[in-house]
Simulated scan of single mutants.
Amino acid sequence: MDSTLISQGLDLMLYGMGTVFTFLTLLVGVTTLMSKTVNKLVVEQPETAVSSVATVLVQSPVEPRIAKVIQAAIDQHRSKK
């Protein structure tokens, strides 16, 4: 076999793998930096469970009769398994 051909193949493989490794390392670093920056800029206000449930119940566009029919259908579907 021709040693230059094998040498060229190994060089190409190392350059390719090095490029992919460098790109992925850079991608992880930039993503981590962006995540930390966004977490510092955006302050999330915690929501209490009671207020969110009350909000959902008040703003529900579904009539209670329809909600009961939907719940019965879901229960029937789950009982078939």
Score class of each variant (00 low, 15 high):
residue 20 V to C: 01
residue 30 V to W: 11
residue 38 V to G: 01
residue 78 R to L: 15
residue 50 V to K: 06
residue 39 N to S: 12
residue 74 I to V: 10
residue 38 V to K: 04
residue 26 L to I: 05
residue 58 V to T: 09
residue 20 V to S: 02
residue 76 Q to N: 12
residue 31 T to I: 10
residue 15 Y to N: 15
residue 60 S to K: 02
residue 13 M to W: 14
residue 6 I to N: 04
residue 19 T to H: 03
residue 51 S to N: 14
residue 24 L to H: 02
residue 74 I to K: 04
residue 47 E to P: 00
residue 13 M to F: 15
residue 70 I to N: 06
residue 63 E to M: 04
residue 72 A to I: 04
residue 12 L to F: 15
residue 66 I to M: 05
residue 55 T to K: 14
residue 3 S to Y: 04
residue 54 A to P: 00
residue 33 L to H: 07
residue 26 L to C: 11
residue 71 Q to A: 15
residue 19 T to F: 06
residue 69 V to Q: 13
residue 75 D to S: 05
residue 70 I to K: 07
residue 52 S to V: 06
residue 29 G to M: 07
residue 17 M to Y: 06
residue 61 P to C: 02
residue 23 F to W: 13
residue 72 A to Q: 08
residue 35 S to W: 01
residue 72 A to S: 13
residue 45 Q to W: 11
residue 78 R to C: 04
residue 39 N to Q: 14
residue 34 M to T: 08
residue 20 V to K: 02
residue 34 M to P: 00
residue 27 L to K: 07
residue 65 R to S: 06
residue 67 A to W: 02
residue 46 P to I: 02
residue 44 E to K: 12
residue 38 V to N: 03
residue 47 E to D: 10
residue 53 V to D: 09
residue 56 V to L: 14
residue 2 D to H: 05
residue 24 L to D: 10
residue 72 A to H: 06
residue 53 V to E: 11
residue 37 T to V: 15
